[in-house]
């Protein structure tokens, strides 16, 4: 029952090590240390502060819609969400 939440990368720091991600209406930082070649605009799955892998926007939106349907508060995420 372990959810990884899709989030969109909105900015990447100059070192390439961390990204700013948009999750619901909130932004926060996550580590890019476990994936290669992430770019602004990519959707990534985020788990305990790490981006795990890229997924397509359509898949991300589908997963987010499902999570909303399941009552998972993906639009109310606060800064500890990732």
């Amino acid at each position: 029952m372990c959810l990884a939440i899709p989030a969109r990368i909105t900015a990447i720091d100059p070192t390439g090590e961390t990204a700013r991600i948009a999750l619901g209406g909130v932004t926060r930082d996550c580590s890019l240390a476990l994936i290669d070649d992430a770019a602004v605009g990519d959707y990534v799955l985020v788990h305990v502060g790490y981006a795990l892998n890229r997924i397509g926007e359509e898949e991300a939106q589908e997963t987010l819609a499902l999570m909303r349907e399941a009552g998972v508060p993906v639009d109310a995420a606060h800064e500890d969400a990732a």
Binding site: M1, C2, L3, A4, L45, L52, E59, E62, T63, L66, M67, E69, A70, G71, V72
Partner: peptide
């Protein structure tokens, strides 16, 4: 959260499970 699978077909369920619980 698995309640959201109720009413769906088996193929769709098996598509959704790994996407949700990744």
């Amino acid at each position: 959260a698995a309640r959201l699978l109720v009413g769906r077909g088996t193929a769709q369920t098996l598509h959704l499970l790994p996407a949700l619980f990744s």
